[in-house]
């Protein structure tokens, strides 16, 4: 009897097991958090050096369109205008999202409403395969197929924003599709039944009921797609032409933030201005990926509030 009483008051093997296990989990989690902090710190510190160490004007960096970090202009200032890359990056991202969204929504409607059994299975496989294709393979096919076709139709080199857009469109299509499917499936069944029973056609129901109430989810899907497009490096780099100049139209060679980083970082020496300027491009990429993140969070919150007020 006393033995049990004593054991009840003392730590046992289980107590130790538990604290060891917890500690292991805490260490792993802390490690990941530290890694993220480390990345953010390094990229931000490096990206800011252009402005703090080399005293480049932030506004010049964002608004000027001459990118020649090894040269100086008439006033003796280095020519670091990142606008061409910023414009190109946003152009390919927005255009790719614009092209991909109708396809993604159509595919999602097809999967959720029109052919929820076999059709869904087929498209699910299609989406999985599209996700699975590596970005260099997309870039390679872009280079072999898309660029020559564009060259053939419109002349010029074929490299440029249009080629980048077409490659990115296919790459972000599965991302937007699968997230749109999730948000359409989250629309309560009774809303659709109610609409159909009132005599609405299936398209009226889809358009007025389903897409409306799934709008926040679809927006989130599009933002995720844009985030992927904005950060994609190699596939774009292979078809964009890599000329750090202001794009005149969709058909002239240009450069995105990622492609400029990819091609040039190996050619510059750490700590010099040309190198720092590239890290500043990286900083823009990092900040944009945070912006996309926050946008998704905000839409999520707003969607939740809307739903709550509806429920009341």
């Amino acid at each position: 009897m006393d033995d049990i009483k004593r054991k009840l008051l003392k730590p046992s093997k289980e107590t130790h097991q538990e604290s060891i296990g917890r500690t292991i989990c805490y260490i792993c989690t802390t490690l990941i958090v530290l890694m993220v902090i480390l990345i953010l710190y390094f990229i931000i510190a490096r990206g800011l050096a252009t402005f703090t160490v080399n005293h480049v004007n932030l506004w010049d960096f964002l608004s000027k369109s001459n990118w020649a970090p090894t040269q100086v202009d008439a006033h003796g200032k280095p020519e670091i205008g990142a606008l061409p890359m910023i414009v190109t990056s946003f152009s390919v991202t927005i255009l790719a999202a614009l092209v991909a969204t109708p396809f993604a929504i159509a595919a999602a409607i097809f999967m959720v409403v029109l052919a929820p059994k076999r059709g869904k299975k087929i498209l699910q496989t299609v989406v999985e395969l599209l996700v699975g294709i590596p970005s260099v393979v997309y870039g390679f096919i872009g280079l072999m197929v898309v660029v020559p076709i564009i060259r053939h139709i419109w002349g010029g080199t074929g490299f440029g924003i249009l080629s980048g857009t077409l490659v990115l469109f296919v790459m972000i299509l599965p991302t937007i599709t699968s997230l749109t499917v999730d948000s359409l499936e989250a629309v309560p069944r009774y809303l659709l039944d109610a609409s159909l029973s009132l005599g609405a056609t299936s398209w009226q129901t889809i358009y007025k009921v389903m897409l409306r109430s799934a709008t926040p989810g679809i927006l989130t899907a599009i933002i995720f797609g844009m985030a992927r497009a904005f950060g994609e490096a190699l596939a774009v780099q292979m078809v964009i032409g890599n000329a750090a100049i202001m794009p005149k139209n969709l058909l002239t060679p240009s450069a995105t933030l990622t492609s400029q980083l990819t091609t040039e970082i190996g050619n510059t020496i750490s700590g010099t201005l040309p190198n720092n300027a590239l890290w500043s491009l990286g900083l823009i990429l990092l900040l944009m990926s945070l912006v996309f993140n926050i946008a998704v969070k905000l839409i999520g919150k707003k969607g939740m509030i809307n739903n709550e007020s509806k429920n009341r």
Binding site: I32, V36, I39, F42, I43, L234, L285, L286, S289
Partner: peptide
Amino acid sequence: LIRTTIEVLSSLPSIIVGLFVYLLFVI
């Protein structure tokens, strides 16, 4: 907070991750 941190990590462009490792480990 930890989930958000992991989401941030997953949304970072892979070129950024590569360049960070290049900076820290390689150099």
